[in-house]
Design a protein around this nucleic acid. Structure first.
Lengths: 233, 233
DNA sequence: GTATTTAAATATGTCATACATACCAAAGTA
DNA sequence: TACTTTGGTATGTATGACATATTTAAATAC
């Protein structure tokens, strides 16, 4: 059997069968303009319509299930679902798996969020919120236990996100926490952390109570100074 | 074969077989402390070890593949992979699927990022970067075509993220773009968009060139003013 | 005629088996 | 030494069957 030199040229499309089925389904979703709650055809029907095995269809569907785009209720058929944006990220954001660079970038991202959250805080703050924040700060000032202090530090910043009233941002921050913690625990960073913050949580609280967004940003920048020094390197 | 009355009591966990296999595999990954690059047992071996069918194992593995935690190279076996944090989100962040509230929150999140990115820009900016930004601004000032203007607006902000040097943030922003666009196109928002920004891209560029992070934040706040008005409601 | 029970139909979940396919490695050939 | 061939291997795909839980409809009891 003679093979022409062209046979060396691999087809561009190295997609597997399941990949194609996945794409085809996605197109189907779009064309049908399917909305959450809408029902899907049965697996067998999909397989028949595409001329492939139920096995392959199931694997493609499995991907959508994993992503949270569809939900299969046993023996009841499948429906389109409104996916949880971060559900998947939670499952992969383990320090074990991420490379150092990505971790570093996520670390920075948290700083960016922290610096940018001020505007919304001033839009959404209220007395109840501020009291809770106050309680945390007071606890912080009273304790000497380092472990407790660290815990309260997390709580303070978490409360800020809560005050933002934006559950998506809140979720995202919670997601970043383990990565952030891991980064902070790295030896190279430990020394910076030791340096006392030049602006305290109390300062932030006071500004949030009686100051302006602009002042808040300045104090927050000061509060995070050590971290910004860190990422300079 | 006698079955006690207790056999009627169904186990609390309504987990499916595949769910259990997934959990079991996850535990295996953790216990073995598997790192990216490490090989997994063959599907058949896993199935045999767990006493289940290869089908079920494959479906559990398929989930991990979808999440990007493992990679299957045909006929070569599977290995642990360093997952791409946002790869999954890209696949679900379609305006069709997300509910209004989540979209609104993502919209806000983009504003937060935009407000917080300044610090890092001043850390990472350089002449080459600024020239590119300048080029975009000049094009903007010369064109009258509204479509082009919108496109250049996106490019300007995208370039800011690029200057941040943080590919994770950059990716995230790209991810948010369609959602943002969708939100902006909503009628209720259209009127706000029509109001001319009180601080231009040129202003931002000038500050980035010769100003301070603090000034930059103030101008950015001014630049996004209309959007902030919008989310107040 | 209403209410409860039973039974059938249904669609996903799981299993077993076989074959296809592409990659690697080792043996064979010029 | 360089190239080709060949075979083993593990994932990818197909087929067919049965399990199981839910829904719907039929059947029975009152």
């Amino acid at each position: 059997m003679s093979s022409s030199p062209l046979s060396k040229l691999r087809p561009i499309n190295t997609l597997t069968q399941v990949d194609k089925i996945e794409a085809s389904l996605q197109e189907y979703f779009r064309e049908e303009n399917l909305q959450p709650g809408d029902a899907l055809p049965k697996e067998i029907e999909i397989a028949a319509a595409m001329g492939v095995s139920r096995t392959a269809v199931r694997e493609a569907l499995s991907r959508f299930k994993t992503l949270g785009i569809i939900e299969a209720r046993k023996n009841r058929g499948m429906i389109i679902k409104s996916p949880d944006v971060f559900n998947n990220m939670e499952r992969i954001l383990h320090p074990n798996l991420l490379d150092k660079n990505t971790m570093q970038e996520i670390f920075e991202m948290r700083l960016v969020l922290e610096m940018g959250i001020g505007e919304i805080l001033f839009l959404r703050k209220n007395n109840a919120n501020l009291l809770k924040l106050e309680a945390i700060v007071e606890k912080e000032e009273k304790t000497a236990d380092k472990e407790v202090k660290i815990q309260l530090d997390v709580e303070f910043h978490s409360m800020l996100y809560k005050i933002s009233g934006n559950k998506t941002i809140q979720r995202f921050q919670k997601l970043l926490l383990p990565v952030f913690k891991y980064a902070v625990d790295r030896p190279i960073h430990a020394q910076h952390q030791l340096a006392p913050a030049t602006a305290s949580h109390r300062d932030l609280l006071n500004i949030l109570k009686k100051g302006t967004p602009e002042e808040f940003r300045i104090i927050m920048r000061e509060h995070l100074k050590n971290y910004f020094e860190y990422i300079k390197e």
